[in-house]
Design a protein around this nucleic acid. Structure first.
Lengths: 211, 211
DNA sequence: ACCTGAACACCGTTCAAGT
DNA sequence: ACCTGAACACCGTTCAAGT
């Protein structure tokens, strides 16, 4: 039955029924399509065809296209969170780690532009409130890093939620403008803008002179 | 001929040909539709129908739907620029005026969410390089305000382009997150986030202690 | 339960033809 | 030049039917 020792899971099994985890397979194929060909190339028909499944099989697992896009977005937020936490911990959980976190954020957006648009472009349906919220979880990683720095007296004692929204806004803004090519026209490269922005950001939220 | 003294330009003239400025009319109707019903409600067929014109008349003026969306976006950038310059001048071209400018930016996005998405969502085609670039023109208003403050010694002597991208990223990020409802869930209102962000931003770019 | 095949309503775009 | 009407290829979604 479980012939788990063959080639690394090709496409399109000849089985009549796609037994097992069709839901997962649908999300995976949708993510691949979005990453490789962009949002507008993502049609439900193409996804089904590529999985060797009927066009309507999808509706057993998702209410509509928006729900599928919601799952694609959720997948993106999980990857993003891992990248953020990874950078923060690899660079020492201090100022340097925080800058690395910001850079990792922008890099994620530039490395996965279409996926990032699905996450923030208003296509995806809001997640089921009953389920874990991957977007909130990614955001929480940022809040945690700020609180940790506050406890060490490295960051201003403002409400962490406010600080986190401030930081998120900045990196999200840089990422979006870079994706839109609004930075590109002869101007400085995204990495330079990111570094400058994070530098100025920190000088605005670090503990320092009162004003 | 020019019966310019009738009712304020109803819809759907009974004329066989839509003489005059069909291009303008198309953009206007598209903007109205986007503002009132959202992006996904904007179909070329509906726009044509509402103007009492054939479905294909549009192709005499625009290459495709993306080009029409480009014109819609351009219209948005012109309005945005006017709002920014208005706030800057009305509040005294100083720190207060600059904060007002930032608030005006976020307010524009919140007042015209769908239009704003057209401007930044990657739907619109890039503008004809030969034509004036309304997005660049709106951005220039920001650069000008920063240079003016630098000349008065109120803002750090960093490259104005860099500073402007930094500021734009921040307000754009706040606007996008608010539009996505990512700020909404029990958190502080967008106006509070905007004010906090601008406060911290200024403390990061104003002339002050070296660090 | 899960999947299928045919059908429906809708879309952007093309093109030969009209004035 | 500018506009029209019919047609094409494509899409998301529904639904009765199969196993």
């Amino acid at each position: 039955m479980a012939a788990s020792r063959r080639a690394p899971a090709r496409r399109k099994r000849p089985d009549a029924y796609h037994h097992g985890d069709l839901r997962r397979a649908l999300v995976g194929e949708a993510v691949r399509t979005v990453e490789a060909q962009g949002i507008e190339a993502l049609t439900l028909r193409a996804v089904a065809l590529r999985l060797g499944v009927s066009r309507t099989a999808l509706y057993r697992h998702f209410a509509d296209k928006g729900a599928l896009l919601g799952a694609v977005a959720a997948e993106g937020f999980r990857t993003l969170r891992a990248a953020l936490v990874g950078a923060w911990e690899a660079e020492g959980r201090g100022r340097k780690g925080f800058v690395a976190m910001g850079e990792a954020y922008v890099r994620f957006a530039l490395d996965h532009p279409s996926h990032y648009r699905v996450m923030f472009g208003g296509f995806a349906l809001p997640p089921d409130p009953a389920l874990a919220d991957p977007a909130g979880s990614a955001f929480q990683a940022l809040v945690d890093a700020l609180v940790e720095q506050q406890e060490r007296g490295e960051v201003r004692d403002d409400p962490p939620l406010m600080l986190a929204l401030h930081v998120w806004s900045l990196v999200h803004g840089v990422a979006m403008l870079a994706l839109d090519g609004q930075l590109g026209a002869g101007g400085p490269p995204p990495s330079a803008v990111t570094q400058f922005a994070l530098e100025r950001l920190l000088s605005g939220i670090e503990v320092g002179v009162k004003r």
